[in-house]
Design a protein around this nucleic acid. Structure first.
Lengths: 202, 202
DNA sequence: CACATTCGAGGCATGGTGTCTCGATATAGT
DNA sequence: ACTATATCGAGACACCATGCCTCGAATGTG
């Protein structure tokens, strides 16, 4: 479910009227960030968010329909930043750096916790699923690395497939509750490169 | 959180007392199965389960702590059955058959919907996480195929890693909301085999 | 027959939901 | 300045699920 008003801070309003309070907006996003760490997603309530932010309940409902929406807005920027990895030189180093960032994000970062909570909610709530589909954080983050490596290795493979091959294993490992310390980014990177080379030879 | 009593239908009780009703137990499990399809996991309530099963609320709470526990008990058997794939002959055919079953399970099967709901709940509830950890449905289902293929191909790779390499890509694809019809089981199987061969050569 | 335990049913306090109303406040158009 | 409009924080409201408790009835064991 998209916010009933679905316009950001700087979009047009009907003429006149008190402008939306930037302070209230920021306080709500911050409250969600805090509460996610303090009580977790399941125990986070719209009521609690409003109280924590020092904001009226209607003010929250006016701009967001669900806690998923708020959490999404509050964590997307952090997620993108944590997953952005500059070119590292050799493809293997490039992939390793990305996979390390990915594991750190999924298993240890607050923004990653938010992403996992949203992904979980999306399995049962199509509104949240659409929200996540509107911004493919993981896919986008991998695309740069994948395209760079595929080009350098002159492999022919659809980017979407390569992305799933790269992200999938650590994604499954962590989401299924396996110990992230048992994950070797370099080993995963090598496995990915192996697959690319073999595909080229075939 | 494990059921406070944590004993099955045929375990010892203190001596005497009315025996647990098999009819009530079955009705509850069936109600959860039905409700998952009719209203989804999020909208499923302990109260609704009891009413649907024609059972007292306390009777539900006596044997299960949460709806996750009930759903787990109600769907594990179906999940195992759907994911059990007999040897198909050639390793590539073996892998393809398994991956087809996996995609069918995750994307289209009611038992798969239950699994996805539980996996989602586990991201926010450590009790559910322990429940899932106690029975690694996906990992166990893949182990047979993986061990068979690794042995036949004489590859040296830890089974856990190979399992993640095999399950991960379709798992990520589906859980992240991508269209499962865009998944080619044979292509995924080939990619897995490619990685195995390259690893052998390295 | 006494005892233990379950059964279905439903009462209860607690707490979150989402809507509504209130008076106050801030901006745009006249 | 004045009016129209939309926001603000605060909280009342009806509704519903939770999880515990109690009841009388049912069903087993020693």
């Amino acid at each position: 479910m998209v916010s009933r008003y679905s316009r950001g801070m700087n979009e047009e309003r009907g003429r006149g009227g008190r402008p939306r309070s930037e302070q209230a907006r920021t306080a709500v996003l911050q409250a969600v960030d805090d509460l996610l760490l303090e009580v977790g997603y399941a125990a986070m309530t719209m009521k609690g968010i409003a109280e924590r932010a020092g904001v009226g309940r209607q003010t929250v409902y006016r701009w967001w329909s669900t806690k998923a929406e708020i959490l999404f807005e509050a964590s997307v920027a952090d997620a993108e930043e944590e997953l952005a990895i500059g070119p590292a030189g050799a493809p293997l180093d490039d992939l390793t750096a990305y996979l390390e960032a990915l594991v750190r994000f999924l298993a240890h970062s607050p923004a990653g916790a938010a992403y996992r909570a949203l992904l979980a909610a999306a399995q049962q709530d199509s509104a949240v699923a659409e929200l996540l589909a509107s911004k493919d954080v993981l896919g986008d983050s991998a695309r740069g690395v994948v395209e760079r490596v595929v080009r350098q290795e002159a492999a022919s493979i659809p980017v979407d497939l390569a992305t799933a091959l790269l992200i999938g294993p650590p994604f499954f490992w962590i989401l299924s509750g396996r110990d992230p310390s048992g994950l070797a980014a370099r080993e995963l990177a090598e496995a990915f490169m192996d697959g690319l080379h073999a595909r080229k030879a075939r």
